[in-house]
Every structure is written in structure tokens, then in C-alpha cells.
């Protein structure tokens, strides 16, 4: 077991108000770690700190360190970090361009394309890895805005895969999707686990139990419990965890 991400004593604040308190947590290489917890538990703040999306918010401040392969992410250049740690948002956000351009957008900007002929290969591989290729291969040049919600979300996954990251953060990726699309996104997560390390924040407790290797339960800015998913869902150590996963919570 190799630790991909190591979080040491991380505290986060919005306008001096503490939303995440001295968090210590590790993410193991090639696992799916899911983070569950009620609203205001700090789980999304935790996720958005891992690729420093929160740095855009001027009311946000933090203490503590996060290491990615032993490199402190707060010392890294933001662009380099985000290239290695991709993020999928709750609502699918395709850019207003064609499907093809959506995939090729980031590799182009990051200078990952050495030869022009290489573009088609990148697009095809990314779409195949996100299990979207068969549905869109005949309309790569049509607007990404005209796809269904589930397809858009898988397009966003493909877009992340195209820059070849090491870690992918999922921020409630299925909250706007129907059950069928949800299953498809979950299937691709399990597929992706072979190559990538995944952190999944979800409001759907069942989803956490279906896809993740380990689960962490957050409550009001603190990590209450973290364990193998199979164990946490069967015999949680803490009473609050049990209450939350069985739906008896507050």
C-alpha cells in the first residue's frame, strides 16, 4: 500500500470560521476513498483543497500540509498540481464547444500534443476510457451542450483523462443524474481505479458502499471515522457514524 496523498493537520477557514479542523487522512494509491457526511461537514472543502480550487476564494484560508507523493501541494505551481489532480464537479460543466474540442482543449493548452496527428488518438482513448466513445463517435463535432446530463458528465471525465492525471476528485458527481446514468458513471469509476487514485465526495451513502474501498465519515468539520468500506458499513465504531449510514441522523 502506497500512500498517494497524505494530509497532515489540515484546518480550513472561511472568513475565519473553521469548517475543517486538524484533519489527518491518507489516500492510498489506486483506491477509491469515499467521503460521506451531512451538509456543512467540510467534505467538499476537503476535496477542493486537494487541488487548490479553493484558493480562488479570497475568504478562504488554511493551516497544515497536504503531500502528493511527498511533495507539498502548497509549494507546487497551481497549474502543475491541477494537471496531476483532476476534478469532476457536481453539475456537468462542458465548455461551450464541440465534443472533440472539449477533450482536446486542455492537452492543447498544456502543450501535451507534440504532433497534430496525435490529437485523434487522445480524443478516442479518453472517450473510450470514459465509456462514451460508442455513443458519440459519429458526432464528435456537434456541440457538447446538446448531450444528455449523464453523457456530459462522462464527457467531463474524459476531459480529465485526456490530461492524464494521477488523482481524480469526484465532487458529488451523480447528484444531478438519473439512476441509469449514475450506474454508468459508477462503472467508469471502478474501471478508472486500475490506473488512477480516486477521492469521491458523495451525499449518497449507498453509492459510497457500492464503489469505494474505504470510507471516511465527516461531521461538522471533523473526521469521525475512516475504515474499509465493508467494515464501516457493517460495524461502525462510532454511534454517530451508525446513525448517519442507517439514515437515523438528525
Amino acid at each position: 500500500m502506497v500512500n498517494k496523498i497524505k494530509v497532515e493537520n489540515l484546518s480550513c477557514y472561511y472568513n475565519e470560521k473553521c469548517v475543517l479542523e486538524s484533519l489527518n487522512i491518507d489516500v492510498v494509491q489506486n483506491e477509491i476513498l469515499s467521503v460521506i457526511g451531512p451538509a456543512n461537514s467540510g467534505k467538499t472543502t476537503f476535496l477542493r483543497t486537494l487541488n487548490r480550487m479553493n484558493d480562488l476564494d479570497i475568504t478562504y484560508s488554511r493551516k497544515g500540509d497536504v503531500y502528493l507523493d511527498d511533495n507539498n501541494i502548497f509549494d507546487m505551481k497551481m497549474e502543475d498540481l491541477r494537471k496531476r489532480v483532476g476534478m469532476l464537479f457536481a453539475m456537468p460543466i462542458p465548455l461551450p464547444m464541440s465534443i472533440y474540442e472539449n477533450i482536446i482543449y486542455a492537452p492543447k493548452r498544456l502543450g501535451l500534443i507534440t504532433r497534430k496527428s496525435y490529437q485523434d488518438t487522445i480524443v478516442e482513448r479518453a472517450l473510450k476510457d470514459a465509456s462514451l466513445w460508442n455513443e458519440v463517435k459519429d458526432r464528435l463535432n456537434s456541440s457538447a451542450m446538446r448531450m444528455s446530463g449523464g453523457q456530459q458528465q462522462r464527457l467531463c471525465i474524459a476531459r480529465i483523462l485526456a490530461v492524464n492525471p494521477e488523482v481524480i476528485l469526484f465532487d458529488e458527481p451523480c447528484s444531478g443524474l438519473d439512476p441509469v446514468s449514475t450506474v454508468k458513471v459508477e462503472e467508469s469509476m471502478l474501471e478508472l481505479k486500475q490506473k488512477y487514485t480516486i477521492v469521491l465526495v458523495t451525499n449518497n451513502v449507498k453509492q459510497a458502499s457500492r464503489v469505494s474501498d474505504r470510507t471516511a465519515f465527516f461531521l461538522t468539520g471533523k473526521l469521525v471515522e475512516i475504515d474499509k468500506t465493508a467494515k464501516l458499513f457493517v460495524s461502525p465504531k462510532e454511534k454517530t457514524t451508525e446513525d448517519y449510514i442507517t439514515g437515523r441522523f438528525g
Binding site: 480562488l56 502543475d80 460543466i93 462542458p94 498544456l110 490530461v163
Partner: peptide
């Protein structure tokens, strides 16, 4: 959200403005 999507892919701020914000 367009800016966020672009930034989250490791694209720099200026490139995001140049290629996503300005055209739109």
C-alpha cells in the same frame, strides 16, 4: 463555472481567459 472547469484541468488563468472567457 466555465472558468472553474478550465482551471481545474491545469490550464492557466490567462489561457482560460484567452480561450474560454474572451471568445464567449
Amino acid at each position: 463555472s466555465f472558468r472553474e472547469a478550465s482551471l481545474s484541468l491545469g490550464v492557466s488563468r490567462w489561457q482560460t481567459i484567452r480561450h474560454v472567457v474572451l471568445p464567449n
